[in-house]
Design a protein around this nucleic acid. Structure first.
Lengths: 202, 202
DNA sequence: GTCGTGTTGGCACTCACTGCCAGGATGGCT
DNA sequence: AGCCATCCTGGCAGTGAGTGCCAACACGAC
């Protein structure tokens, strides 16, 4: 990673933090790109060289999370069932981001809480998710042999759905008082997918 | 349904059709709201009284599809397992929209094909989906007793994921030549979710 | 030093989308 | 029929996101 790349990543983080703070303080609609850029010490024009939309600036932590997943899919084995392996990856990543115990986890939590009141941010996150999903699907297809594209898509989308619900529930629980274990919530979502009857009784 | 409502629905349909045709012809980015409004015989200001965004105009057929689902969830029974009932609803709705055999199905197909090359349209569809998902979840929560909110969300999202993948695969298959049975594709997606190992072998 | 490459900031522009207001159509009423 | 309340429409002016272009600038390699 070159010096230039590291500098870029650094400003990305700084601008993202400024944007997130402003969004939290005044709401997304009331925050202009000009204001973000001013507080971050860059020009509005440069802002759009770092982020394609205003909302994406707040999603830096979220992107980090998905980067970590992307880094782990290389280790997938074609010999064992894929879905459990995918789920295992998510468990590991979510464990690393759990609660506010880690810096990264704290940030993701801020983003997810903000999402609860900001539809445009949810949209932006969905858009980011979709990009990552495509990459993951392509990777899985290579791994499984190109034959079953449909299978790859279903697996990735299904796993992603469980994660999404778990993250939502997590943010909501934190908001409404109770501390909740993100990993446990995810495990529960996964069980509900695979055997709704049994999981519902627990 | 009053006369005013019917008129409104009618213009909605007309404007939507104009928008869809223009999007297909020149791409979404190259199509301005002014142009859509001009061809539809309304003012741009009025356009935004019918649709909150440019893209939403193309999603009228898609909304119809989801309306039909919403109409059927009232008949859900709390006594039988919920997921199979949900899946049954989707099968019925998708059957009604299959191929280009019905007018409505033809329109949905056009939209889904357009989506393949237009990220902004995919986004808009995701946004619409989310609204409907929320309503469905709320309904399910009432039905199941408020207790398990998480369960309702997981079920709805999981079922929706299968539908999304099936619609995508359908549009892609039509695009690349082969006629494909939408309902069969959906059934396959559903099986892949519930038992990936066995379904993959078929 | 200098040269090529990549980065920045300003400018001007397009266009989606919104609040406001004034006129016009509509449907219900007597 | 005539009248009134209500909704619908179109125009106007404004905001602000996002983009192409160009000129100035920083940099690493030689």
């Amino acid at each position: 990673m070159s010096l230039r790349d590291r500098r870029r990543a650094q400003t990305e983080r700084e601008v993202g933090e400024v944007a997130l703070a402003l969004f939290e303080a005044h709401g997304i609609d009331a925050t202009t790109v000009d204001e973000i850029a001013r507080q971050a010490g860059i020009s509005p024009r440069t802002f759009f060289r770092y982020f394609p939309t205003k909302e994406r600036a707040a999603l830096v932590p979220h992107r980090d999370l998905e980067d970590r997943v992307a880094a782990m899919v290389d280790a997938l084995s074609p010999d064992r069932p894929v879905l459990p392996q995918l789920e295992e990856i998510w468990v590991e990543v979510l464990t690393a981001f759990d609660d506010g115990r880690s810096e990264a986890g704290e940030q993701v939590l801020r983003v997810r809480r903000l999402m609860r009141t900001e539809p445009s941010l949810r949209l932006a996150a969905a858009s980011l998710d979709e990009e990552r999903t495509l990459v993951l699907v392509a990777h899985l297809r290579d791994l499984l042999g190109d034959l079953d594209d449909l299978r790859a898509r279903v697996l990735v989308e299904t796993a992603a759905a469980a994660v999404r619900v778990a993250l939502d529930a997590w943010a909501e629980a934190v908001e409404t008082g109770g501390e909740v274990d993100l990993v446990a919530t995810y495990a529960r979502c996964r069980d509900l997918q695979h055997d709704p009857q049994r999981a519902a009784r627990t």
